[in-house]
């Protein structure tokens, strides 16, 4: 519990540095630190699968983000939006924070999941009690992903495929245009 609070505090510091620093590369590295701390926090929360996934995803995130920021001549952008926009933004953040505090009144206390409060109705309790018999998987998380909620995972794969396809299509346009020799609209490629 204390370790978790310390980890969360460090994550908060890293996030503030990432948002507030003027150098983009430092911001990317700070967000990487936040992601790795999050991975450690998942380990303390009894979620080793998620910790491993978070670690891999974080490394890939860092590679992608550094690809976006490095070798750009203008990596340091300072200054905020106009004053009115900033006031509206801060007001929005305060509003969301107040709504979140109100929502936390409804949350179960920390360390006491909902499935412990309603053991007969919660699907999680069923998964835990019958997962091994019904799916043969010792790891209940994989049993949920690949057996109980396999259609969810299929949808996830579809979304992931679409996102990667979109990213590839966006990056490809430049290559095709250069091949056709039509570079009037484009500057020099990165």
């Amino acid at each position: 519990m204390t370790i978790l609070a310390a980890l969360l505090f460090l994550m908060l510091v890293g996030a503030i540095i990432a948002v507030e620093t003027t150098n983009l590369l430092s911001a990317v590295i700070s967000v990487g630190a936040v992601g790795f701390l999050l991975s450690i926090a998942f380990l303390f929360l009894g979620a080793p699968d998620i910790a491993i996934t978070q670690l891999v995803v974080e490394i890939l995130c860092l590679v992608i983000l550094i690809r976006a920021t490095i070798s750009r001549d203008l990596t340091a952008v300072s200054g905020e939006r106009e004053f009115f926009g900033m006031v509206v933004g801060v007001a929005l953040v305060v509003l969301v924070a107040l709504a979140g505090i109100a929502a936390f009144e409804q949350f179960p206390p920390f360390g006491e999941p909902v499935m412990a409060r309603f053991p007969d109705d919660a699907p999680s309790a069923t998964y835990l009690a019958e997962g091994l018999d019904r799916t043969g998987a010792a790891n209940i998380v994989t049993a949920v992903i690949l057996d109980f909620r396999a259609y969810d995972t299929l949808g996830e794969a579809t979304v992931l495929f679409c996102a990667i396809l979109g990213a590839l299509a966006l990056m490809r346009r430049r290559a095709r245009r250069q091949r056709d020799g039509d570079e009037t609209e484009e500057g020099d490629a990165a």
């Binding site: 995803v57 990213a167 966006l170």
Partner: peptide
């Protein structure tokens, strides 16, 4: 286990969206 399974999904989707 249920939030863990769904968050696993969410993390991977987050990577795809970030790439885009």
């Amino acid at each position: 286990p249920l939030p863990q399974a769904l968050v696993l999904t969410s993390i991977v989707i987050g990577l795809g969206v970030l790439a885009m």
